[in-house]
Write a protein that binds this DNA or RNA. Structure first.
Ligand SMILES: [Mn+2]
Ligand SMILES: [Mn+2]
Ligand SMILES: [Mn+2]
Ligand SMILES: [Mn+2]
Lengths: 242, 242
DNA sequence: ACGGCGATTTTGACTAATCAAAAATACAAC
DNA sequence: GTTGTATTTTTGATTAGTCAAAATCGCCGT
């Protein structure tokens, strides 16, 4: 039997949750999983025990949960569907990047292999979704690149936004308004630890400030090649990735 | 709370089932509903009673079930989503008309209003799906035209296939192979009651025979305007409807 | 070593949807 | 009318997923 939407959501959230863990940690605490899924803590515990039975996760009581190889494979295909659908909705259906997440959240559970392959093909086998998140390969392979953030990248250099790690429409629109979509160029003018903020200069030379929390959500590519490739098109158009 | 997929499927099937009832009848027997949905008879009974509670159907024990106005509205929006999705998959995604039904069966429950409106717009507010089934309007209005079938239409006249009332991929491919997709022209050469078959002449002049059961699944437009409009393109291409 | 407290697990209960099998019903045939 | 059969309904159980609240656990600070 195919995994239920619920199982798919749990696995996906374990994958994403583990990814956001502080360096070193590999076990996602149940509380975090529960709140990411919007269920009561006890519900997550029960469900995770069942997933462990099925060999999809490793579960250490009181410590947390992590995906097995099988679980990772499954999470990857869900993520692949989610992200291909998002990109499809933006690129083909002309929807805005801030409104596609919710649709994808549902569609990810029902698009058939046939259909997802057509989408993948139609989009030219893309590597990242509209938010810069990597699209897992057909066989469940995920290549997560490591990025700096606007909080950690070198000051004074032109960097290219690679990924925005927050799906909130309000935040995404804010990001767009300031020319910080994936593919766009920006540079950190100054960083003020005390004020908890960073001074930025956009592609159009405008200056603006971001709080640390927001700045840390913007992952950037600091390699010179990225800056070179991105420079030409400075506008707000559909972000040219890679 | 939005209706569950299960509720949507029940309402849709009641709508379709009532439509297939012998002239005069308006109540769909539980057995038929159950087998259309692939559930046990008792399951259908229980569910229908609940739907009656919610005011979506009228239920007469031992007689059958029929949609209320509210139920019809809901069934129509599900059918609208189903059929728009089917046409979209064929027209935009390049899928074959015999393989889109299953995908649509799942997608019909998760495509958002926003997305279905984009699809509708992108397709130019189409009136029929790839099988010739009418697409209900945004407000839940369904205009079911009445058609003859290859079993009842006049002999010797050119008629235009309007609708194919069987989603079985094998049947659909058969129909396509013989040039009987919606929009294509055909004429009944002879009808043999005893042999339980009809002799047909396709647009390319080839002759072939269809059993009565199959012939009755092909709904045709017998008006001269239809024949005139359809004549130019005789090929097997994407059926030009209306 | 001992509280205390936040996080986690356990318990008991509930809802939606389903099935198998028994009971009831309608109706047609005799 | 009585009877037989097919259809429908009822009954009792099951599964997936969930919650609230009680019980338990781990660990930090004293
Ligand atoms: Mn989801
Ligand atoms: Mn995304
Ligand atoms: Mn369906
Ligand atoms: Mn159809």
């Amino acid at each position: 039997m195919p995994p239920s939407s619920t199982v798919e959501n749990y696995l996906k959230e374990v994958y994403l949750g583990v990814g956001r863990l502080p360096a070193g940690a590999t076990l996602l605490p149940m509380g975090q999983l529960a709140s990411a899924l919007g269920v009561a803590p006890g519900t997550a515990t029960t469900m995770v025990k069942a997933l462990a039975e099925s060999g999809l996760v490793d579960y250490e009581p009181y410590n947390g949960v992590r995906l097995t190889a099988a679980g990772t494979r499954l999470a990857a295909t869900v993520l692949r569907r989610h992200r291909l659908v998002e990109l499809f909705l933006v690129q083909v259906m002309g929807m805005r990047w801030d409104e596609v997440h919710d649709d994808a959240e549902h569609l990810e559970h029902v698009v058939s292999d046939r259909l997802i392959d057509r989408i993948d093909e139609m989009l030219g086998h893309p590597e990242t979704d509209p938010h810069g998140d990597p699209i897992p390969g057909k066989e469940g392979t995920i290549r997560e690149r490591h990025f700096e953030t606007l909080l950690t990248c070198p000051v004074g250099t032109r960097v290219v936004v690679a990924r925005v790690s927050d799906q909130d429409p309000v935040f995404l629109r804010f990001v767009e308004r300031h020319g910080l979509k994936p593919g766009q160029v920006v540079s950190v003018e100054a960083r003020d630890e005390v004020a908890d903020a960073v001074q930025l200069r956009g592609a159009d030379e405008t200056l603006f400030t971001l709080g640390a929390r927001a700045a840390s959500k913007l992952l950037v590519d600091v390699t010179p090649e990225a800056a070179a490739a991105a420079t030409p098109a400075a506008g707000r158009s559909a972000a040219p990735r890679r």
